[in-house]
């Protein structure tokens, strides 16, 4: 108890405040609030075009209590590189650069710029708040859309089951650039998310965190279920949470009680067309493969320092 009270008393100054225009239950808004709790105030945030830019910046209003800049859709990473270069030139080294972009700006249209930034190793923590489609324009397919999900530009129909391809494995691509820190996180596990942001801030150079941020409006679930949907995504194996340091996986979030993918999918309208289809098996296989690949079900390594699941979520 005492420990909890101490935490509350030390509650960090809120740097992303209420009053913004996110939809009810927006996973992204919650993620951003906790990202900034973890970074503290000495950051400059760059956000490419997308939901986050739109709902936080109607002219004359702002929930950002840190300097924030939106420039264009495809240049979040390079604007961030420019800010980092300026800070270095000005010797304002204690100020850190954070880019927070959606999956469209990160996986797709900003991918070239992202790769350039990573290859140069510019001192930027790039965070992708991933909701798996272009939500700002009404839910069109992106490279982050999961297999079989319905989007407005890849809808299920008599000749279609929705997204035909798997989600791009961007964390692996980022890691292939040889950056010091890559992690995946979920808004359903906020303690883990904040810890990863803090860990990322301990490194210099390019770092990447990809956060699963469920979107009630386009995924099609009631807005009070954001965290539940996020949790089920992790527990069924479709959203593996792990972190890599210098190319090696150093921790995974283990699944205590694995759930079948249907538990995750049935809550979301974007997968309803799939529930009575044989292809459902493919998604289950995919989840099982992911669990095996990252060792999400194995017992914790006794006394190992690499398993950091413990601790209640807050």
């Amino acid at each position: 108890m005492g420990k909890k009270r101490k935490r509350d008393a030390a509650a960090e100054e809120e740097l992303f405040v209420s009053g913004h225009r996110a939809c009810p239950g927006c996973g992204m808004a919650l993620a951003v609030r906790h990202i900034l709790r973890a970074t503290g105030k000495d950051v400059i945030v760059v956000t490419p075009t997308g939901c986050l830019e739109t709902f936080t910046s109607p002219y004359g209003y702002s929930p950002w209590r840190v300097p924030w800049i939106h420039h264009l859709f495809e240049n979040g990473p390079s604007v961030a590189s420019g800010v980092a270069a300026a800070l270095k030139a000005q010797k304002r080294d204690h100020i850190r650069v954070l880019a927070i972009g959606g999956d469209g700006g990160t996986f797709d249209i900003g991918f070239g710029a992202l790769s350039g930034m990573l290859e140069r190793g510019d001192d930027v923590l790039y965070i992708c708040v991933d909701n798996g489609a272009y939500m700002n324009t009404g839910g069109q397919r992106s490279g982050a859309t999961p297999l079989y999900a319905a989007t407005t530009t890849d809808p299920p129909g008599r000749r279609s089951l929705g997204k035909r391809e798997r989600k791009k494995d961007l964390p692996a691509i980022v890691a292939a650039h040889g950056v010091p820190y890559v992690a995946t996180a979920s808004v359903a596990y906020l303690g883990d998310l904040r810890r990863k942001v803090r860990r990322a801030m301990a490194f210099r150079g390019s770092r990447y965190i990809q956060i699963d941020t469920p979107c009630p409006s386009v995924w099609g679930f009631p807005s009070h279920l954001t965290l539940e949907v996020g949790r089920l995504g992790v527990k069924c194996g479709l959203i593996p949470l792990y972190e890599m340091e210098n190319g090696q996986i150093v921790s995974v979030k283990r699944i205590k009680r694995k759930v079948p993918v249907t538990e995750y999918l049935r809550l979301q309208r974007r997968f309803h067309h799939l529930l009575d289809r044989d292809e459902l098996k493919r998604l289950q296989e995919f989840a099982d493969d992911t669990i095996r690949r990252y060792g999400l079900l194995g017992p914790s390594e006794k006394g190992g320092s690499h398993d950091r699941e413990g601790g209640p979520e807050r």
């Binding site: 400059i44 800049i69 420039h71 990473p77 590189s81 800010v83 070239g112």
Partner: peptide, 14 residues
């Protein structure tokens, strides 16, 4: 595209 974006970011940072 990134060259112009980098100088934009640098300019915004002063």
């Amino acid at each position: 595209f990134s060259a112009a974006s980098v100088v934009s970011g640098a300019s915004a940072a002063g």
